[in-house]
Design a protein around this nucleic acid. Sequence first.
DNA 1: GCCAACGTTGGC
DNA 2: GCCAACGTTGGC
Length: 155
Amino acid sequence: MSKTRRHWLMKSEPDAFSIDDLARVGTEPWTGVRNYQARNFMRQMRIGDGVLFYHSSCAEPGIVGIARVASEAYPDPTQFDPQSDYHDPKSTREQPRWDLVDVAFERKLRRTLPLEEIRRHADALGEDFALLRRGNRLSVMPVTPAQWRLLLSLE
DNA sequence: GCCAACGTTGGC
DNA sequence: GCCAACGTTGGC
């Protein structure tokens, strides 16, 4: 396993949990991911990896801040909680299905980097940039160093 | 609110 | 193992 810091993009609906919420709490366990691909990406995360914080399902979807991975992946406790929206009856403490990582606030961007503007750089970002793939619904995705640089240069 | 895209479930 | 039905995501 490489020791190089890697980069990711994580989506959140600001009505549920925004970049300002993260700024307030400092560090947040990223509960509720119930997609295997997204879970597997979180399992690849290492402490210190960079995270682009993306607001989805809102008036101006886009990248709004930078965070960093603050823990290795560990079982998402909400999967065991029958009261939780994220409860998964097929999960047991012996055999958990869902993991999460802790995410720590780094900074807000000077402005929201809107999806619409990101789209205009689709060619430079390349085919492997999952955010712009057709019908993309992935909430956790990898970002290459080149994509990271390009996106932050737009700020 | 609409709808396209996609993942998951379950019957067969 | 196929595939239709269903639920969810997320931009608009």
